[in-house]
Design a protein around this nucleic acid. Sequence first.
DNA 1: ACAAAAGTGTTCACTGTACACCCATGT
DNA 2: ACATGGGTGTACAGTGAACACTTTTGT
Lengths: 228, 228
Amino acid sequence: MTKAYEGHDCLYVAVDCIIFGFDGTEIKALLVKRALEPGNGMWSLMGGFVGANESVGNAASRVLENLTGLDNVYMEQLYCFGDVNRDEAERVVSIAYFALINLDNYKEALLKKHQAGWFSLNQIPTMIFDHKEMIALSLERLRQKAIAYPIGFELLPAKFTMQQLQALYEAVYNTHFDKRNFTKKILSLNLLNRLTEKEKATSRKGSFLYMFDKKKYKQLKKQGIKLL
Amino acid sequence: MTKAYEGHDCLYVAVDCIIFGFDGTEIKALLVKRALEPGNGMWSLMGGFVGANESVGNAASRVLENLTGLDNVYMEQLYCFGDVNRDEAERVVSIAYFALINLDNYKEALLKKHQAGWFSLNQIPTMIFDHKEMIALSLERLRQKAIAYPIGFELLPAKFTMQQLQALYEAVYNTHFDKRNFTKKILSLNLLNRLTEKEKATSRKGSFLYMFDKKKYKQLKKQGIKLL
DNA sequence: ACAAAAGTGTTCACTGTACACCCATGT
DNA sequence: ACATGGGTGTACAGTGAACACTTTTGT
């Protein structure tokens, strides 16, 4: 029974992670300097091979934790890239995942070890193989995702101001929203709890801090929620 | 350079095709009786292994054509299923594709050869491995797809009545739409050309036939189209 | 004449969008 | 007192949803 499929080809299967963060102004992607041939030293997504005894999803989590030190990160499968010659050296099928993390939570030390860096989406350097294509596709997915899922859960600190939230959506869609309309719509969803606490660092008056209410989100999700 | 990744595991990679058709009343899926162990004789999606020298997408097209005799079929990648034990016999990573075809175009003879059959979505039999999960996911994708893409292009004959089109959308979303509102919305998109010809088989008065205008669709697509 | 399906408009509620001024506070 | 960013409401247009009668023609 262990040779059921003998005669068929077997292929290397890899995962590559597109990791997005938000620095308060821009969406950034986390890239690493590749540490093996071919393409040693080139910019690349964080990736790795899927082992015979781990699921593809677990491999992606492992790779992500390896780089950032974070587990329990929001991650979803993006697409399987399967062209014959996408990897110059050998036939490798890669399943791309995209992840959203809070920029402040990652472990600096690990990033240094991997020679990693955060790049603005309009300043992505030349990348190995089809990795640039992966990033482009994941940006589309992020935009689509943000319509129905409050990506602020992952990309913002636990307590945030309305202005930070708006800046996040403006960065994702590369546009500007009217402050009054944005506030109105977001608050009408009842997803946010306003704290009594205020953020005083950026203005004299101080601005209210909010937190996401995950319970309310779970309720709303069932009904089909639309944030934007 | 051909042993760049020696030491890493290599895995069987398969494709499985979820093939949807529309019979005028219901959306149906095309299933086959599996012809190899394990699970010989059980209902299954049409699938096959990805060869070392073909892309994953090409493998999916090959498998689909093998079953239906059709090429140039609408097909898109759905999801990569990569659990360790999803296939009982060996480690196989499967990339699922979903395809839309016109029920009338497929080659009967090929279906018989593969012992294939069309199944209503609420009468899917017990299936091998995770294939039922694949179908469930593809139905979600179909519903999402139908919002922004005129699936009638693929699922209806070239000439069709407004009523057939409405029946298609009602089948996809398992609901009922108001005839006047449906017609109004669809026609407002300017995607359809009304022919002078009428369909006289189903009523005394006869109903107009329409055709999709692919050029108009291409224009609209760029602006972001919403059908429903 | 009648049966059977086709075709067609209006009203209303709601949602999205444009738009500008006062508020609180630290200096 | 004033400069800085924070917070808030209204009016209008466009979209989605409910709703029923007339038309055509084969029998």
